[in-house]
Amino acid sequence: MRALTELTGLVVPLDRANVDTDAIIPKQFLKSILRSGFGVNLFDAWRYLDQGEPGQDCSQRPLNPDFVLNQPRYQGAQILLARENFGCGSSREHAPWAIADYGLRVLIAPGFADIFYNNCFKNGLLPIVLPAEQVERLFQETFAHPGYQLHVDLVKQEIVTPAGEILTFDVDAHRKLCLLNGWDDIGLTLQHLGEIRAYEAQRIIDAPWLFS
């Protein structure tokens, strides 16, 4: 997993509530056997004017000029500003895969759906929950200032605005550690290698039928 300690990045504002995983990555793309390459289909139904199908060359498709991700001023954004209950719906991990593949690293919203929130951390994304008024203010500032950037510092758990204002956020200690170090859960679990082996060794004696 890619580590994340701090970054200064362009902010793109997605101004709607209850964005579900079907909107993030529509179901026709779930037949893919890959973990990568979903970025071109992120928000597919909103982003393009035609009907998206797996395996298309998306560079030839007509873009929806009204969709925020398509606006020139937001190209290269690394921070997504979103509204309440982002990522609701199915548990598909294709949603965070698509977001990360697109190039986003940090998501800021007043709230995220549970499973989606978990899935983000497994894929090098930092979802940050801020009070609704703060999120609202960030939306207004982003709209008002082309090129609006935020500095996100995971070590200090703070966001610094261009005006120098500091917004602090909470994050689970275990998840923070993983993200800072780029450890995926697997890497972390393998630190308990000795314990897993010891458990197995005892288990083979106690319940040999499980190992045949």
Binding site: E93, I115, K122, D184, D185, I186, T189, H192, I196, E200
Partner: peptide, 16 residues
């Protein structure tokens, strides 16, 4: 479990 967890179990025989 989700797909990351499928990978986790394949690699470690455990689940968080």
């Amino acid at each position: 479990i989700g797909t990351s967890e499928v990978e986790h179990v394949l690699a470690t025989q455990c689940l968080v």
